[in-house]
Design a protein around this nucleic acid. Structure first.
Lengths: 111, 111
DNA sequence: ATTATTGATCGTAATATTGCAATATAATAA
DNA sequence: TTATTATATTGCAATATTACGATCAATAAT
C-alpha cells in the first residue's frame, strides 16, 4: 500500500508523527542546523553548503516551511530563510513532553 | 531516485534523521505510548489496541526494536515488548540537544 | 502426536519519497 | 526592453514505505 491509515490514530499522534517525519531526513536536519548558525540566511548558500541540487533543496525547504519549522522572507531576488522561533519552541516542547511521558506514566518495567 | 544521499551528511545528522524517521509514523508513536502505560506488555494486545493487521504491527515493532527504542523478551509463545530505558534516555537527550542547539548557537534572527 | 496459539517473515500491491533536469516565475540590472 | 539572478514548480525515474494475506517456526494445550 504505502498509505498511512491516519484515521486509526489520534490527531496528536498524527501530528507528532508528521513532525518527526519532517525531521526524518539528514538534509533537513542539516538545513536546520545551518540555519541555527547562519547570519546571512540566504537560500542559495544552502546549495553550496549541502551537495544537493537546487531543486532538491527547494523541496526540502518547502517541507520545513509547510510544517512551520522555518519561515521565509523575500529579500529582492533572494529569499531569506530562518527558524520560526514560536514554532520551534512549540515543537521542542511537544517532543519533550512525548519523551517525558514515559517517565510520568510508566507503570512497571516488565521486561 | 528515492534514495537518500547519506554520504553528504555527518554520522550524527544521519543518526538523528534515522531516529526521527522511526518516530515518523503514527502507529509507532501509538505503540510507544501504549508501552508507556502497559503493565502486561504482551505483543498481541497491540493488534487489538491499534486497528492494524498482525503482520503490520510486527513490522513496526521490528523497526522500533532495531533502532533500540524498545526491547523484546520471549515469554513462552508470546513476546513481551517494552521501552528500552537506557536507549530512551539517550534518544531523549539527543533530541533535547538538537532542539536546544538553536538557542545555544543562534547568531541573529535575520527574518 | 495432533492441534491451537503466538509472533516473525515472505511476497506483493499500492502509494510515498527522493533527487534532478528542465522549465517557469519573479525581481532587479543593464 | 532584455538580460541576469534567485528560487519555485513540474515531470519523471529510482527507490522506499506501508499494509496485509499467506505461511513458517516455536511453544502450549489436548
Amino acid at each position: 500500500m504505502g498509505i498511512t491509515k491516519t484515521d486509526l490514530f489520534s490527531t496528536e499522534q498524527n501530528a507528532m508523527a508528521h513532525m518527526a517525519k519532517v525531521l526524518g531526513h539528514p538534509a533537513r536536519i542539516a538545513i536546520l542546523q545551518y540555519l541555527f548558525r547562519s547570519t546571512t540566511c540566504i537560500n542559495g548558500d544552502l546549495v553550496q553548503e549541502l551537495g544537493l541540487a537546487q531543486a532538491t533543496i527547494s523541496q526540502h525547504l518547502r517541507e520545513l516551511k509547510e510544517i512551520g519549522f522555518i519561515q521565509g522572507t523575500i529579500e529582492g531576488v533572494s529569499v531569506c530563510y530562518c527558524i520560526n522561533p514560536e514554532k520551534w519552541a512549540e515543537f521542542s516542547q511537544l517532543f519533550g513532553v512525548f519523551f517525558d511521558d514515559y517517565y510520568v506514566t510508566q507503570k512497571s518495567n516488565c521486561c
